[in-house]
Simulated scan of single mutants.
Amino acid sequence: MNEFPICSATFTDAGRAPRVLPEETAVAITVNGSTYAVLMATPASLEDLAIGFARTEGIVDTIGDIEQVEIVACEDGLEARLWISKDRADAMAARRRAMAGPVGCGLCGIESLKEAMRSVPRMSGSGALISETLASRATTLLRHQQRLHMRSGSMHAAGFLSPKKGIVAVREDVGRHNALDKLVGCVENMGCAPESGAFVLTSRVSVELVQKAAMVVCGMIIAVSGPTALAIRVAHEAGITVLGFARNGTYECYCHPYRISQG
């Protein structure tokens, strides 16, 4: 459901063609009736956003813990209403009671500064092997599927790269975190395991994106821009391969290069 427009046309200087601008709307993520976070997001693929957010933020362990997702238009924005199993709801409530400090440190779903550096799972398996040729073309393949970015020129995207099929899913948003959450929700709705491929991003690699990848056990991130130093430290500990500056047929590998195969 899209009660709000995704993009709008506006005129710039007189005589020029209209510029298409992406919309951003307040989207409240609620869990079993209580607001968990409010995001500014592109009002598209919001069910994917809610599911992906629940997975990457550790609200649920699997998509099977989610009983229902409902997108509701409100006066000031949209609500993505999640209904999760009682066991997961009880675990989430216990976690929030254990947190110290006031709400609102500026990260989605985070209630204390300590939570910003949460521990993340370490990859226990080898993860997918991606050929050097495919890795070097990944961001180009993604760019060809960025339909909203083609219209506006100002959208982030996240794509899922299959070792055998290339880019099999793409989601776009004004926010890079939202784009990745939407992609996670999409991939899991497809019944595809994130560990079977790689996330391809149109942004820099920040620590939050590494944390999100680790939470869904995706072993590789390929990004058009570079990573932060903290992101690489966390990726190294989590066992995640990070490729940065992947453009024009080249890339830089920062950690765990064994997932890149020759050819």
Rank of each mutant, 00 (worst) to 15 (best):
G77S: 01
G77L: 00
G77C: 03
L78K: 04
E79I: 11
E79T: 02
A80P: 00
L82G: 00
L82M: 04
I84Y: 06
I84V: 06
K86S: 07
K86L: 05
A89V: 00
A91L: 08
M92G: 07
A93D: 11
A94S: 09
R96Y: 07
R96V: 02
R96N: 07
R97N: 08
R97Y: 04
R97D: 12
A98Y: 08
A98Q: 10
M99N: 06
G101F: 01
G104S: 06
C105E: 12
C105H: 13
C105N: 12
L107W: 14
L107S: 13
G109A: 10
G109W: 10
I110Y: 11
E111I: 08
S112I: 03
L113W: 15
K114H: 14
K114T: 15
E115N: 11
E115M: 12
E115W: 12
A116S: 15
A116N: 09
A116R: 13
M117D: 15
R118L: 12
V120Q: 11
V120W: 09
P121N: 11
M123L: 15
M123G: 10
M123Y: 10
S124N: 13
S124M: 13
S124Q: 14
G125L: 10
S126I: 09
S126Q: 12
S126F: 14
S126D: 12
G127T: 05
G127Q: 09
G127P: 06
G127K: 09
A128W: 10
I130A: 07
E132Q: 12
E132T: 07
E132H: 15
T133C: 07
L134V: 06
L134F: 09
A135G: 02
S136E: 08
R137K: 14
T139S: 05
T140M: 08
T140G: 11
L142P: 01
R143L: 02
R143E: 10
H144P: 03
H144D: 11
H144Q: 14
Q145M: 05
Q146W: 05
Q146F: 01
L148D: 03
H149R: 11
H149P: 00
H149I: 00
R151N: 05
R151G: 01
R151T: 05
S152G: 00
S152W: 04
G153K: 04
S154K: 08
H156M: 09
H156D: 01
G159F: 02
L161G: 00
S162A: 06
S162V: 04
P163W: 05
P163I: 03
P163H: 02
K164H: 04
K164Y: 06
K165H: 11
K165V: 01
V168C: 00
R171L: 00
D173G: 00
V174H: 02
R176P: 01
R176Y: 07
A179N: 03
A179E: 04
D181V: 01
D181Q: 14
D181A: 11
K182I: 01
L183P: 03
L183T: 05
V184S: 05
C186I: 02
V187E: 06
E188N: 13
G191L: 09
G191M: 10
G191F: 13
C192N: 09
P194S: 09
E195A: 14
S196W: 11
G197W: 08
A198S: 08
F199D: 08
V200D: 03
L201F: 15
L201I: 07
T202F: 10
R204I: 07
R204T: 14
V205L: 08
S206I: 10
V207Y: 10
V207F: 12
L209Y: 08
L209V: 06
